[in-house]
């Protein structure tokens, strides 16, 4: 046994080395030289502006990851000469760290670490690449590092608006919310939604069910069934597993409010509105800062006021005019500060 294993491992290793050597000899050394590529961020116009995204789920997930990929696409459309690289599906935090480090060492101008869980790693990586700018979200901390931006979404604001609408539309007074784990953006949204619903109808009972998983679609579906059994006639939820809950809502004719991306396509009959993130609003600021030589140090937030958060109504759903007016009033109230989301 021993010899067999030795030898194949040895051969495998040898093959790897040989191939690696081939790779080295034919390749030039752009990737290994850390700093050269990006010394001048305001270099010649012919040089493309290079943006890399590292994100936890699929880039077309109709939720968190897609929101940043779409935003960078918008930026690309506006600026023209932009090169975009994406490493998606990187839920393993250490793998994300490796990818962030990799892009930084390849001299990307802006590396976007699109996951709260990546922050701790970024704090260690960013100082090693002072010429590269990093953006981290959703978070509200730049660690005092000069080349780190952070960005967050005031998802409680959109949540509050939709909570108000939900309470106004609910006939039973029972509203169901499906969440993953009570953390971060999910908690912010859910708390805002619940606050809005209760503000609109103090007698409303808002049932909140955190299933304990970001990925378990079947559990999210059954959580929605439980809400339905408890009498909910309006529901909402956040994170990628809610697609299961939307299906149940559709089947039972329960109204749905979406967040992070426009979820109308999942159930055109019952989706009332979605809170949609437009990160391009803050990306524009970050990039113009970058081009004037400021690589970080700012905390950005998208919200209803700056247009980074937009409530997109489903045109196919006949939203009563008074409820729509209520929503618009609530948005105006949040924007001018007369309404607090309680967050």
């Amino acid at each position: 046994m021993r010899r067999r294993h030795t030898t194949w491992l040895a051969l495998f290793a040898a093959l790897m080395m040989v191939l690696a050597a081939c790779g080295d000899s034919t390749d030039d050394t752009t990737a290994t030289d850390d700093t050269e590529a990006s010394t001048e961020t305001t270099a010649a116009a012919a040089e493309p502006f290079r943006i890399a995204i590292v994100a936890p789920s699929a880039s077309n997930d109709l939720a968190f990851t897609q929101s940043i990929v779409d935003a960078v696409d918008v930026i690309k459309g506006e600026m023209g000469n932009v090169e975009v690289a994406v490493t998606d599906g990187t839920f393993v935090v250490e793998d994300a760290a490796a990818a962030i480090r990799g892009y930084a060492s390849e001299g990307y101008d802006l590396v976007i670490a699109h996951g709260s869980q990546y922050g701790g790693s970024l704090q260690e990586i960013a100082p090693d690449f002072p010429e590269v700018s990093f953006a981290w979200g959703t978070a509200a901390d730049t660690f005092g590092i000069a080349n780190v931006y952070s960005y967050e979404a005031a998802s409680d604001e959109g949540g509050y608006v939709m909570g108000v609408m939900a309470a106004a539309l609910s006939e039973s007074g029972t509203i169901g919310v499906v969440g993953p784990i009570e953390v971060g953006d999910a908690k912010l949204y859910v708390d805002g939604f619940a606050a809005g619903a209760v503000a609109q109808n103090p007698a409303a009972s808002v049932n909140i069910n955190y299933t304990g998983s970001f990925g378990d679609v079947a559990l999210a579906s059954e959580a929605a069934q439980a809400h339905a059994a408890a009498g909910a006639d309006v529901m909402s939820g956040t994170a990628q597993m809610v697609v299961g809950a939307v299906g149940v809502a559709d089947e039972q004719g329960i109204l749905w409010f979406g967040t992070q991306a426009n979820q109308t396509s999942l159930a055109p009959d019952i989706v009332v509105a979605s809170q949609v993130y437009h990160w391009e609003v803050i990306l524009r600021d970050i990039i113009s800062n970058l081009q004037s030589g400021k690589l970080g140090g700012e905390i950005y937030s998208i919200n209803l006021a700056n247009g980074g958060e937009v409530i997109e109504y489903n045109p196919a759903y006949a939203l009563p005019d008074d409820v729509k007016q209520l929503a618009e009033d609530t948005i105006a109230g949040i924007v001018d500060g007369s309404i607090s989301t309680g967050g």
Binding site: I181, E182, N207, Y210, T211, G212, L219, A226, A230
Partner: peptide
Amino acid sequence: VNSLVLQFKTLGIIPRSWSDIAA
């Protein structure tokens, strides 16, 4: 057990702060 836990969470019989423990 899964469906019971979900139902208890929905009705608030299991407090929200216990949701992962209940899972």
